[in-house]
Design a binder for these strands. Structure first.
Ligand code: MN
Ligand code: MN
Ligand code: ZN
Ligand code: ZN
Lengths: 137, 137
DNA sequence: TCCTACACTAGACACTGTCTAAGTCAAGCA
DNA sequence: TGCTTGACTTAGACAGTGTCTAGTGTAGGA
């Protein structure tokens, strides 16, 4: 993640305590956190950090391609530091648990030309829904 | 759509002017409307209909499987009277246009057992994103 | 026709995210 | 090291979408 801080500095970012803390939170093994969850964890290390700054920083990191936004429900967006490998998501309909998954084949290829209606398709999001083992038992 | 009204009556629904109007709106060729768009159209026919009733009625129709909810963006949910044939959605990233599409194969089959982590998967949502012909020109 | 449980309304409220105005400070430079 | 300046941060107001509640109305059966 210090790699990330370097890359950001290289892009002309001012390195502030707030941005460092947000990066640290994402660097943990906590993945798919909401903005407010990131904020809650950031506040532990930097009590005065504001919600707006967390939102801003997350948005900037998304623009830079350092993290990705995931919308598996209609509640809050989630932020995923796993931006280096394309993947999809598997979500438990009961408890909301989210797992990264890797479907076989290229999801783009599942749509035949006759169903593309002249669109230039650039992206596909697949969300698998079901019940996780602990909710099933 | 009078079919729908009959089915609802059969399920013990009271047939009110409000519910009839919501059903009429969905019966038009307007698909993928938001709740507030449904409300706006309903108000033309029944000026005193409230937002809460439209939300309630749409929610009930979803529970009954008569319409489906579609979340292609993080804005409002959209309501799709095309509940009789499974399909996915193709969305223009510029103008937001939405088309029903039918991928080849069963989308569920794209996830190998080794990537299911013990989940019992029951549903898949696929959203294709790109630029539509009119936005491209 | 009357009764009553179900439905409807207006508006308050909650959640997520955005915006603004004022204050703060990182970083380049003397 | 100490300025200067514009990028950054803050608190809180605001906006969009959806939910809930208390009071009122009414569909449909007796
Ligand atoms: Mn992920
Ligand atoms: Mn559809
Ligand atoms: Zn679960
Ligand atoms: Zn378009």
């Amino acid at each position: 993640m210090s790699d990330l801080l370097e890359r950001l500095r290289g892009r002309g970012w001012r390195m502030t305590a707030q941005r460092r803390v947000v990066a640290e939170v994402l660097d943990g093994d906590h993945t798919h956190l909401t903005a407010d969850e990131v904020h809650a964890r950031a506040v532990v290390k930097l009590p005065e950090i504001s919600r707006a700054t967390v939102y801003n920083t997350l948005g900037e990191l998304v623009s830079l391609g350092e993290i990705i936004e995931v919308s598996t429900d209609r509640r809050a967006k989630r932020y995923d530091p796993n931006a280096h490998r394309p993947h999809q998501h598997l979500v438990c309909s009961r408890c909301g648990a989210i797992r990264d998954v890797h479907p076989t084949g290229n999801p783009l290829a599942t749509l035949p030309d006759s169903e593309r209606f002249g669109f230039t398709i650039s992206d596909v999001e697949v969300t698998y829904r079901g019940v996780c083992p602990s909710c099933a038992s």
